[in-house]
């Protein structure tokens, strides 16, 4: 089976004035369908850069990135936007919900950009909210929801386009431990249902619940191991 994500010698260089900073220096990685993977590393290790590249928010300065059979490392901005819309569901640390929109409308947003029309859009958004256990909070605004509920809305929004990858950036970073546990169970369930999940985190106990942990250091892969204890 071919890899869902195929990364070869991926590099990303930033210029700050005359200085060149190599945030990633030659990362090679394959990620398969229905993997549950954590990317770890100390700050400055290239985690965020990796996340931006995986999420097609940014393009590499070296190497190749094949996503779902398509080489996406050389695409234009608008082509990348369409790839993000189709292939990637983002979950952010700070939720990033539109404050004045209802849960339902927040979840509809990716469908708006996918060109899905009114009725179907609402039905699919409602189904996604049901899937994360928030079917009864559709008409609430983010300010009327708890932190855990907000993150569930964000997860529903990430799922609504049935993306190839669910890409979560420190999804429990702003939550207490009980709520974190609750959100991690949602991810585990989604993975059990066949969803590919990639999580960027610096918390070992979060990473411990995934099946594979990739550790970055100084822009390179330091270790890449299967997490035996995760099945529990």
């Amino acid at each position: 089976m071919s890899a869902l994500i195929r990364i070869r010698d991926l590099g990303r260089e930033y210029r700050m004035g005359d200085e060149r900073i190599l945030a990633l220096r030659g990362v090679t990685l394959d990620i398969h369908r229905n993997e549950y993977l954590a990317i770890m590393g100390p700050s400055g290790s290239g985690k965020s850069t990796m996340m931006n590249l995986l999420g097609c928010l940014d393009t590499p300065t070296a190497g190749e990135y094949w996503l779902n059979g398509e080489e996406v490392s050389r695409l234009t901005d608008d082509a990348l936007a369409r790839v993000r819309n189709r292939e990637i569901g983002f979950v952010f640390q700070t939720f990033n919900l539109l404050p004045r929109a209802t849960s339902l409308h927040n979840v509809e947003l990716p469908l708006v950009y996918a060109g899905v029309r009114g009725r179907e859009r609402r039905e699919r958004a409602a189904a996604a909210l049901d899937q994360v256990g928030l079917g009864h909070r559709m008409d609430h605004r983010p300010s009327e929801l708890s932190g855990g509920q907000r993150q569930r809305v964000a997860i529903a929004r990430a799922l609504v386009n049935q993306p190839s990858i669910l890409l979560a950036d420190e999804p429990t970073g702003n939550l207490d431990s009980v709520t974190s546990d609750e959100i991690m169970r949602v991810f585990t369930q989604l993975h059990a249902g066949g969803q590919t999940v990639i999580m960027v985190t610096h918390e070992p106990d979060i990473a411990a619940r995934t099946e594979r942990v990739v550790v970055l250091r100084d822009g390179q892969v330091e270790s890449d191991r299967v997490n035996r204890g995760a099945a529990a």
């Binding site: 928010l57 990033n96 950009y113 929004r157």
Partner: peptide
């Protein structure tokens, strides 16, 4: 700005 970033992450093109 942040809202614009979010919309782009969710698939909004420049034209959108």
């Amino acid at each position: 700005t942040k809202e614009i970033g979010l919309r782009k992450a969710l698939g909004a093109t420049r034209r959108d």
